[in-house]
Computed example of a mutant assay.
Amino acid sequence: MAISIEDHHLPYETHNLYDVKFFDDRIHTLVTHTSSFVNTWIAETQQKLLQNNNHAHRPLIVGLDVEWRPNRFRQIENPVATLQLSAGNACLIFQLLHCPTGIPQSLYDFLSDMTYTFVGVGIEGDVRKLTEDYELSVGNAVDLRGLAAEKLGDFKWNKSGIKTLAREVLGKEIEKPKRITLSRWDNAWLTTAQVQYACLDAFLSCKIGESLLAA
């Protein structure tokens, strides 16, 4: 099977670990609502990004995506429930909505750092919602749709979703089940299907961004 997930079933209230298998990639995924684990993930990720990238030739790329409980009523706008970040084969799913101690300063600093390029599909809307809901700002955000239109030389990519871009840029097929898209992202415990979905959105954004920016 091209896509699968392994739940490590850690006996903790603060976090859990998963391995998401996507074709030949194994994505190590941390799900947490606890600031200290976010601090550690960011520190380790920054170190790896610096080690693995040549600053003179390519930017430091991080896939970004968010999820929230679907809005059932027009007058009610539900806040972002999870923030997903992916760099290399590491993914963080941070449950902001359930963070008991507030968002750590390390995340504010990481997202606003102009040396990183945060990429995603429709990322402007995600960034705006992060700012409105949590006063989080992203210093350097690039929409993969516009980037694909520029690099691939066709404006039709301006309306593409991540499924289409993954197929065109990476040659990989992915499903986006509506039952997961519209599921309860505000639940304290995410299902394995939600974790897999959220992880792959951020991971694929990162890989598509890497491929397009290297072109």
Rank of each mutant, 00 (worst) to 15 (best):
residue 119 V to D: 05
residue 164 T to M: 10
residue 127 V to I: 06
residue 143 D to I: 11
residue 142 V to F: 00
residue 137 S to H: 09
residue 107 L to Y: 08
residue 182 L to C: 12
residue 114 M to A: 09
residue 158 N to V: 00
residue 171 G to T: 08
residue 180 I to F: 05
residue 110 F to W: 13
residue 124 E to C: 10
residue 111 L to W: 06
residue 101 T to F: 01
residue 116 Y to P: 01
residue 185 W to S: 10
residue 111 L to H: 08
residue 150 E to D: 12
residue 184 R to W: 05
residue 162 I to M: 14
residue 141 A to W: 01
residue 182 L to M: 15
residue 145 R to K: 14
residue 160 S to R: 11
residue 125 G to A: 10
residue 108 Y to T: 09
residue 143 D to K: 13
residue 149 A to C: 04
residue 187 N to S: 15
residue 124 E to W: 05
residue 139 G to Q: 03
residue 146 G to D: 03
residue 164 T to K: 15
residue 144 L to F: 05
residue 111 L to C: 08
residue 173 E to Q: 12
residue 178 K to W: 03
residue 131 T to H: 15
residue 104 P to H: 03
residue 131 T to C: 13
residue 145 R to F: 02
residue 162 I to V: 14
residue 109 D to V: 07
residue 183 S to A: 14
residue 139 G to K: 06
residue 108 Y to A: 06
residue 160 S to D: 05
residue 180 I to L: 13
residue 151 K to G: 00
residue 108 Y to S: 09
residue 119 V to Y: 04
residue 122 G to T: 13
residue 110 F to N: 09
residue 148 A to H: 06
residue 115 T to K: 14
residue 170 L to D: 06
residue 157 W to I: 06
residue 158 N to F: 01
residue 109 D to I: 04
residue 102 G to M: 02
residue 129 K to E: 08
residue 143 D to Q: 11
residue 161 G to F: 04
residue 104 P to I: 01
residue 144 L to A: 08
residue 182 L to D: 12
residue 122 G to V: 12
residue 132 E to T: 15
residue 154 D to H: 08
residue 160 S to C: 14
residue 180 I to C: 10
residue 170 L to F: 06
residue 171 G to I: 04
residue 114 M to Y: 05
residue 121 V to M: 02
residue 127 V to F: 01
residue 117 T to F: 00
residue 135 E to F: 11
residue 142 V to Q: 11
residue 105 Q to A: 12
residue 142 V to L: 13
residue 132 E to N: 15
residue 117 T to V: 13
residue 129 K to R: 15
residue 163 K to I: 12
residue 141 A to N: 07
residue 143 D to V: 12
residue 122 G to M: 10
residue 175 E to A: 15
residue 178 K to Y: 05
residue 168 E to H: 09
residue 152 L to Q: 08
residue 179 R to I: 12
residue 109 D to G: 02
residue 180 I to M: 08
residue 160 S to H: 14
residue 102 G to C: 00
residue 115 T to G: 00
residue 173 E to V: 08
residue 110 F to Q: 10
residue 186 D to M: 07
residue 140 N to K: 11
residue 133 D to S: 08
residue 152 L to I: 01
residue 148 A to W: 03
residue 110 F to T: 09
residue 179 R to D: 14
residue 160 S to I: 04
residue 148 A to L: 03
residue 151 K to D: 00
residue 157 W to D: 02
residue 182 L to T: 14
residue 130 L to N: 09
residue 159 K to N: 11
residue 171 G to S: 06
residue 144 L to M: 06
residue 135 E to Y: 12
residue 125 G to P: 07
residue 133 D to Q: 06
residue 108 Y to V: 05
residue 122 G to A: 11
residue 155 F to Y: 11
residue 173 E to P: 00
residue 186 D to C: 05
residue 141 A to E: 09
residue 116 Y to W: 01
residue 154 D to C: 03
residue 124 E to G: 13
residue 172 K to W: 07
residue 106 S to I: 01
residue 149 A to T: 05
residue 149 A to Y: 03
residue 118 F to D: 04
residue 165 L to Q: 02
residue 106 S to R: 11
residue 134 Y to I: 06
residue 149 A to V: 04
residue 186 D to I: 06
residue 161 G to H: 09
residue 172 K to A: 02
residue 133 D to P: 03
residue 167 R to L: 11
residue 123 I to W: 02
residue 103 I to N: 07
residue 151 K to H: 00
residue 114 M to W: 00
